[in-house]
Amino acid sequence: MEFFHQNLSYFLSGISVGGQYALIAIGYTMVYGILRLINFAHGDVFMCAGLMMVYLSSTLPFTITIPLVLLLTVLLGFVIERVAYMPLRSAPRMSVMISAIGVSYLLQNAALYFTGGLAKVYPEIPFLSNSIVIWDATTRVVTIVTPFLTVVLVILLTLLIKHTKIGMAMRAVSRDFETSQLMGIKINRVISTTFMIGSLLASVASLLYFTNYASVTPTSGAMPGLKAFVAAVFGGIGSIPGAVIGAFIIGICENIIKGGASIFGIPGSGWTTFSDAFTFAFLIVILVVKPTGLFGEKAVDKV
């Protein structure tokens, strides 16, 4: 108990970062589930949401900025899919992947152009940025809000997929394009919806994540994007519960390693340096031991 008490702040931030990774990871896993595409631009969409917040909040009140950022990010996800992926629907998978890498760099370069390469200070969002003290550990409200908000959003998403018409269509399309079309489903609409949901969740994640990190740069999306992707692979890419659980595990482990010095009584703070290396070593181990991840479907490709 004493141990837990002393290291509470690491657990808290682990759970919080895990929730943020989870919201990003859902976008990777859903798009993969439906298109078998690793959407390399997803982390950059997340970064763009951060920058939009920076620019819009300088002139508009938060009550307008926040919904506007959510809306614009959804629109960005939609446009990327229509322009960069839809025309390649029947092209080999490798071409679509290259297109995704291209979009990723395009977004980063556009961000570089607008920011001039400077780190932009992320606004203090009222309430979320406030400090609170929990059992002697000082943290921001966002740390506590994140896991709850994540769980609520995941439940809503699960209900959407299990119990609505569009959710049923998403499950059908992710199985079989052609038969879905024979049912009268317009697959492009369903794919667009998937991208829009992924972008919306990435946008929510950006609000939570950048509130803790104070600034946004054109490459700010790369690391959280990559870790969310690792989480999705860990959980079994294509599986939403897998991505969420994978993200929480990675967030918590990462922060325990960061706190390694004090947790395990090792002097010096050298461990923090290795927390990212840990994440990727972790991925390699998982891929060796269980290539399909925690909840991954067996190697059945599209039928």
Binding site: R171, D176, E178
Partner: peptide
């Protein structure tokens, strides 16, 4: 409507 060759029902629905 077409009932496709090989039935093509959705196995996880």
């Amino acid at each position: 409507t077409l009932v496709p060759e090989g039935r093509k029902i959705f196995p996880d629905l």
